[in-house]
């Protein structure tokens, strides 16, 4: 698994790790989707959304990106499983999200927090960070 859900007294703490930054961003979205636990109808409408962001550093870019995906998830009632990154640097990105309308969500996420988030490379040259989701 590219991510593990760890213990947190009140919220959900996730450890995400990936071979590249692009994968780390995509895996973090998948972790968020797992927490949201959507129920998808058999024939769901496909929905797309565009996200364009600039941030002061790569950790801020990830947290801002996840919060924007969460916003689109809630506004469009859609689970975005496909992330196409058209441009990607440490401080900016442009992405197209596509996914399916959900019937319901099993769990709410209020926000993606900055607490403990810090993208680093470990000894195996993997990118990793912890993310705490406010439930």
């Amino acid at each position: 698994m590219p991510y593990e859900i760890l213990e947190h007294t009140a919220d959900v703490r996730v450890h995400v790790h990936a071979a590249s930054l692009v994968e780390l961003f995509s895996d973090a979205v998948q972790a968020m989707n797992e927490i949201l636990d959507p129920t998808l109808p058999e024939q769901a409408k496909v929905v797309t959304a565009e996200i364009s962001l600039e941030a002061p550093d790569v950790t801020a870019l990830l947290i801002d990106f996840l919060n924007d995906v969460l916003l689109q998830t809630q506004l469009q009632r859609t689970t975005f499983r496909d992330i196409a990154l058209h441009t990607f640097t440490d401080t900016s990105l442009r992405a197209t999200l596509s996914g399916q309308r959900f019937a319901s969500l099993g769990r709410d996420i209020k926000a993606v927090t900055w607490h403990e988030a810090e993208i680093r490379r470990n000894r195996n040259r993997e990118w990793k960070t912890v993310i705490v989701f406010d439930i």
Binding site: T59, A60, L71, T113, W114, H115, E116
Partner: peptide, 27 residues
């Protein structure tokens, strides 16, 4: 309310250097 907090934390994180604040946690 969740989105008001998200918007404000994003904005304030970008202004910390200007305020001269060094925080132990960006949250």
């Amino acid at each position: 309310g969740h989105q008001v907090a998200t918007d404000s934390i994003r904005l304030m994180n970008r202004s910390l250097a200007r305020f001269g604040f060094s925080l132990p946690d960006r949250e």
